[in-house]
């Protein structure tokens, strides 16, 4: 097991190295470049040359890459220019990250809690009206642009009918901040109204964000259970006279859930991309929202820290999924 994790970590180092190279060249190729981004288009040639030298942009490319790596490791990405002018880009990431984690957590919770039982039910009653209906819902779920669904929910349930709040993470209640996970903070400080307010704000964005993971996890669960139900060992278990309960739990679900675990991990990593769109609609104040603004207004320092963070999170989640996979399925470790 330890050997597996070490090997897996070494592979991750390779991926991160290539990623950093890609990010470095991506940043250099962004239109306008760093100098124009800081000084604007109208700077005199002298000031431009001075800044070029100050930033070390006149040095050989591998020296620049080395310095870039050094800054990245120290979390020094410069100040934001447009999203929150003057604020340190890395601080923006740190303060906003909990908001996105909270949103993603609830979205994934909704998706998993609904998708796995429904996928299982669908497979057990394959080709029934329930099954066909759910398959259609899952296909439509993938075909709807996330930001449009988010808007529809917001318009119907927050603007037209005042069921849920329109935007933001919490009402203005003067809540104490501990971890910046607002639901958790309310529980920790016994300010339950804060938690309730945060939960109300969470409903619409997390439902919007949950649609795609729900559709994908549902379909994988359905397909996987269907496949396992046809396996010989299930028939053997039935012919041995085992109870339906044992067969479902031990033989069917345990085997069918392997690919589902993989899919859940993958969807977790991908949530961030959906969060960019959902957070923008609900003005959520997480890193997705900041990323959307950074793209729109071309705030390069915020862009680089957030893209690096997004890729890093994705890589780490993949690592965790692989390790959990190795724990569940011993065959993985030996290969």
């Amino acid at each position: 097991m330890a050997r597996f994790i070490i090997r897996r970590l070494l592979q991750m180092v390779g991926v991160v190295f290539v990623l950093s190279l890609l990010l470095f060249f991506w940043l250099r190729s962004l239109p306008g470049g760093t100098v124009s981004a800081i000084l604007g288009e109208r700077a005199t040639p002298e000031t431009r040359a001075a800044l070029t030298k100050a930033l070390g942009l006149d040095q050989p490319i591998w020296v620049q890459y080395g310095k870039f790596l050094g800054r990245a490791v120290r979390g020094d990405f410069g100040a934001s220019t447009k999203v929150l002018p003057g604020a340190d880009a890395f601080d923006i990431f740190l303060t906003r990250f909990p908001a996105t984690v909270e949103l993603s957590f609830f979205a994934l919770l909704i998706a998993v809690v609904l998708a796995i039982p429904l996928g299982y039910l669908s497979a057990r009653r394959a080709n029934s009206p329930l099954d066909s209906g759910l398959v259609i819902v899952s296909l439509v779920g993938v075909a709807v642009p996330v930001f449009f669904l988010a808007f529809l929910l917001k318009y119907q349930l927050a603007v037209e009918h005042n069921v849920f709040p329109v935007s933001g993470r919490q009402d203005n209640l003067n809540c104490t901040r501990v971890t910046n996970f607002f639901v958790l903070d309310g529980l920790l400080t016994r300010e339950l109204d804060c938690s309730v307010s945060a939960l109300k704000h969470l409903v619409l964005p997390s439902v919007a964000l949950a649609t795609i993971p729900f559709a994908v996890i549902y379909r994988i669960t359905r397909a996987s259970v269907l496949e396992v139900l046809g396996e010989d060992y299930v028939r053997t278990a039935e012919s041995k006279g085992l109870t339906a309960r044992v067969i479902r739990g031990r033989h069917v679900l345990r085997n069918a859930l392997l690919p589902v675990v993989t899919t859940i991990g993958l969807q977790t990593g991908g949530l961030l991309a959906g969060a960019v769109l959902t957070e923008k609609v609900f003005n959520w104040g997480g890193i997705g929202n900041a990323l959307a603004d950074a793209f729109q207004f071309r705030d390069y320092s915020v862009l680089q820290v957030l893209i690096l963070a997004a890729a890093g999170i994705y890589v780490i989640i993949n690592l965790l999924v692989d390790i959990s996979y190795a724990v569940i399925d011993p065959r993985v470790r030996t290969r």
Binding site: L19, S29, P31, L272, A273, G274, F295, L303, A311, Y314
Partner: peptide
């Protein structure tokens, strides 16, 4: 290893 929509955003931003 980059979420695909994020990759599309990043490439579009190069223009």
């Amino acid at each position: 290893s980059i979420p695909s929509l994020l990759l599309a955003f990043s490439i579009a931003a190069l223009a």
